[in-house]
Design a protein around this nucleic acid. Structure first.
Lengths: 136, 136, 136, 136
DNA sequence: GTGGTCTAGACCACC
DNA sequence: GTGGTCTAGACCACG
């Protein structure tokens, strides 16, 4: 379900966070669904439990998942898209860096948008199956 | 010319790299122009010479700048945009992360493209100096 | 495993790079094998950790080794020979200088090829381990 | 006559040394011929006189050129090929490094010999014109 | 434990 | 003057 690349420069706990978010957007994980426990997930991903724990903690902070004490960890039912100040800052910085490097590699704005398109469509797979059109 | 944010999570040497690239694209630094010496730049940026040296070294490896022995460091005359595999990978990863977070914050593709537009224009020295049109 | 000559004019970090490459070609270090940690290696070679770090960094950039976050540094599994422009240039320059000096010392082309032969065989792990034939 | 590349990583004074040696082997400079004075050469090469001076000094030490006080600097009449211990060491080291990098780039011994051939022939140009055959 | 980054200070070759 | 290398020592994020 989630692919971890230990060789990547992005921290493993962050890869887990992204993986969960991605699975939710794709509809692989649905609101209310139970996530594997920290230990189970660590086993599945061949990772240190502490790392999974850190990821879960962050996901909880973002209200993407909820911990029901004694019952386990679940995908939040009531998640509502909300623009977060700090993530927005990070996103802009990241985007600025991308534009900078893109121009340096001779990529046009169109090239970038095209790549982006692919990812946008990837994350709409499930929605596409259900409603066919999804301009999001 | 270059702003360093010591509190940022992006390493100082990387901020320097980005700063120099940005200055070149904006036309603030022109091909053949001399950069401040390592020690001077360190003084300007209130940082350690080794940190500047690391940034310069990386920029040289990217052929953005070149060293004339004993004379100093200069913006390359003959820089040619070239797509580098590694950077392309990083750019795609970064872009994927952006799309993911954007969708999570409820931003549409158009929102992202709009932000990107701003940066693309910011980095276009032609428009800045002469207000020409340049679809790049 | 790696010999460092502090008096040599070639930088220590470069000697380390060459040493690791050599050990790999000789089969002393095998793909997937763990390298000593930066601190360990520094201890072994009686040098500063930063120097080892610089060498490892360069080897990683060359994809000769790879870092598994928090676990250590390993010989790459999937290294594929690839001609790199910059190194090719350096190699040619170096070769030109050799020919020049060789002629000045009255060495024939055959003399040079003979010396080269020795090194080629030295670096051939097949011949070392199994004494096979391998025109490489 | 001599090409200097200030961007090269090989020191300028060394480039001058190599340039003079090369010119002699090619027959462009002949034994007994007068070299430009340090200042003249510095002007020609657009270089610092100190740099030329250092090169001439080294060439004199190698007995490639001779200084006749008050008259100028001349190509030695009596130069005889002689294997010098230290140069031989440097040559071997250099060759070893070449073999190492060549193997890493997937170049065969034949590839290297072919490149070497080109340089060997380049340095025989004049001899070729006079005697047609020159296996050296 | 691992590697990555930064500082401070030093020495050197080269121009 | 320039950049390149090295040491010593420190802090941090990550697993």
């Amino acid at each position: 379900m989630i692919n971890i690349d230990a060789r990547s420069s992005t921290p493993i706990y962050e890869q887990i966070i992204n993986g969960v978010k991605e699975a939710i957007l794709k509809g692989i994980l649905e609101p209310g669904e139970k996530l594997p426990s920290v230990r189970e997930m660590a086993g599945i991903l061949m990772t240190n439990p502490n790392t999974v724990s850190k990821a879960y903690g962050e996901l909880e902070r973002l209200k993407v998942i909820e911990v029901l004490r004694g019952k386990g960890t679940f995908i939040s039912m009531d998640y509502k898209p909300k623009i977060q100040e700090d993530m927005m800052e990070a996103l802009k910085d990241s985007l600025k860096k991308i534009v900078l490097d893109a121009k340096y590699m001779g990529l046009t704005k169109k090239d970038i948008v095209n790549i982006m398109d692919v990812y946008y469509k990837e994350l709409d797979k499930e929605e596409q199956n259900e409603s066919k059109e999804g301009e999001n």
